[in-house]
Amino acid sequence: MFSWSYIQQVLPSFEQALWLTLKISAVGIGAAILIGALCSVVIFYRIAVFSQIAKGYVAFFRNTPLLLHLFFIYYGLPRALNITLSFETTALLGLSLLGGAYMAEAFRSGIEAVAKSQFESGQAIGLNRWQMVRYIILPQAISYCVPALGANCIFLFKETSVFTAIAGTDVTTIAINFINNGGPTNDNLLLLVLSYLVVIVPFIFILSYVEKRVRRAEFGN
């Protein structure tokens, strides 16, 4: 059913590709969280023109596929603006922009869950707008939106499979290349599935632990 000798032969290539996929995912998700937090605060405070720009950004990237973004960045920019980006840069940029839109919605739901009395208390002690964001709004909002943030992280990691569209060296592309070059399909698909599971399954347990911890801290249980 499976050729273990073949699996041992291609395993180093899968490990290398998985590390690259993890690196792009980690940096992209980190950037997405920062973008999402910034957009959610701008939208919440309705900051002049910036709130409209943020809303347009969130609406556009939430309603268009990552594949379209990658095609435009990787194939469109060189022709339109003579800007050529590497596979890693394109993948990172596409994942960050897509993820930022989803993270913004997650943070927005968390901010809306913060009690109004918390805002009134912050104003009463003389905190300015950004001090309230730093010390009151975001810490509590994060505790509410941990499940949504975690789900978005898993979603973004799985979206890395779309990188095959720009012929990269991620784990999905490596598996497809081996299959196209005559490698056994079952063996390569097994390694591909295990590559994703070995990341996602531990992350689910970590997310569950973090969620319980923030809830205990919030309600004092």
Results as ranks from 00 to 15, higher is better:
47 I>R: 03
62 R>V: 11
39 C>R: 00
61 F>Y: 13
58 V>T: 03
79 R>D: 14
12 P>E: 03
71 F>N: 05
18 L>E: 04
42 V>L: 15
23 K>L: 08
40 S>Y: 05
76 G>H: 12
102 Y>K: 07
35 I>M: 05
61 F>M: 02
63 N>Y: 08
19 W>Y: 10
78 P>Y: 09
21 T>Y: 06
26 A>F: 15
71 F>G: 14
37 A>V: 03
48 A>S: 13
15 E>W: 12
59 A>D: 15
44 F>V: 13
61 F>K: 06
68 L>I: 15
17 A>E: 01
11 L>P: 06
36 G>T: 01
72 F>E: 05
39 C>W: 04
37 A>P: 06
58 V>R: 09
85 L>Q: 09
40 S>V: 02
30 G>S: 01
79 R>E: 15
88 E>W: 05
85 L>P: 04
90 T>C: 10
67 L>K: 04
99 G>T: 10
68 L>P: 09
80 A>M: 13
49 V>C: 07
68 L>E: 09
18 L>N: 07
85 L>M: 13
25 S>I: 03
50 F>V: 12
59 A>Q: 12
86 S>P: 02
29 I>A: 02
68 L>R: 07
93 L>N: 09
11 L>E: 00
45 Y>W: 13
75 Y>P: 00
90 T>A: 03
68 L>W: 10
84 T>R: 11
49 V>T: 10
80 A>D: 08
28 G>E: 03
13 S>T: 12
97 L>G: 04
87 F>T: 01
34 L>H: 09
73 I>T: 08
40 S>D: 03
88 E>S: 09
13 S>E: 15
94 G>D: 06
87 F>Y: 15
47 I>C: 04
79 R>N: 15
17 A>G: 10
89 T>H: 13
54 A>L: 07
20 L>Q: 00
89 T>M: 13
50 F>L: 15
49 V>L: 14
35 I>A: 01
96 S>N: 02
80 A>V: 15
93 L>T: 13
18 L>I: 06
70 L>S: 00
24 I>D: 06
13 S>I: 07
83 I>A: 03
30 G>K: 06
29 I>L: 06
100 G>K: 00
87 F>P: 00
64 T>Q: 07
11 L>H: 05
30 G>Y: 10
96 S>V: 01
85 L>I: 10
54 A>C: 14
95 L>H: 06
57 Y>H: 13
57 Y>S: 10
29 I>T: 01
54 A>I: 12
19 W>F: 05
101 A>W: 08
61 F>Q: 07
32 A>C: 08
53 I>E: 01
91 A>E: 06
47 I>L: 14
53 I>W: 11
66 L>K: 04
75 Y>C: 04
64 T>W: 03
77 L>E: 07
25 S>A: 13
61 F>N: 13
76 G>F: 12
43 I>C: 12
98 L>H: 10
96 S>G: 02
74 Y>G: 01
16 Q>Y: 09
86 S>Y: 02
99 G>K: 11
92 L>R: 00
105 E>I: 02
104 A>H: 00
46 R>C: 09
30 G>D: 11
80 A>P: 03
98 L>T: 15
50 F>D: 00
49 V>N: 09
71 F>H: 03
94 G>S: 14
99 G>H: 05
13 S>Q: 14
103 M>A: 11
11 L>K: 04
55 K>Y: 06
17 A>S: 11
98 L>P: 05
42 V>G: 08
72 F>M: 14
81 L>I: 10
81 L>P: 07
12 P>I: 02
92 L>M: 04
31 A>W: 11
63 N>D: 10
16 Q>L: 14
